[in-house]
């Protein structure tokens, strides 16, 4: 029987976890109330001096195990929730506004990563809206 010779197939597909660009960020003082579980007391505590960051993205956030982290200066915000069905608008929480510094650059990265220093100037900086 004749022998075949063929190029190797790409049998596996890599994930597309590219983080979308931030289109807009709104920041405001807010009260954080953790969602109440039906079956137990939440380990998360309410925060009266919280700040919410509503982040609008250019594309839906890819779904993966790790979550997105919003870095505000040196502060890492790991709690977030989707505000739309598309997954393009997220609310991030800082539980203590005293930890945030006015003018601090805002970056979006995946959990476990740090903002790359080579990315240049941040498009958005922290400034709390006065209500």
């Amino acid at each position: 029987m004749p022998s075949d010779k063929s190029p190797r197939m790409e049998t596996h597909r890599p994930p597309d976890w590219k983080l979308p660009e931030i289109r807009a960020v709104e920041m405001r003082a807010a009260v954080y109330e953790p969602r109440r579980p039906r079956n137990f007391e939440s380990p998360l505590v309410a925060a009266r001096d919280a700040v919410e960051f509503v982040v609008r993205l250019a594309a839906p956030l890819p779904a993966r195990a790790l979550g997105p982290v919003l870095w505000v200066g040196e502060k890492r915000l790991t709690e977030s929730e989707s505000l739309d069905k598309e997954g393009k608008e997220f609310r991030f929480w800082s539980f203590d506004r005293r930890e945030l510094k006015e003018g601090a650059p805002i970056w979006l990265v995946w959990m476990g990563e740090k903002p790359s220093k080579g990315k240049g100037k941040a498009k958005f900086t922290y400034k709390l809206a006065v209500r």
Partner: peptide, 9 residues
């Protein structure tokens, strides 16, 4: 639709 400890809870 959610990330962080709240999502795990």
């Amino acid at each position: 639709n959610g990330n962080g400890v709240q999502n795990i809870v």
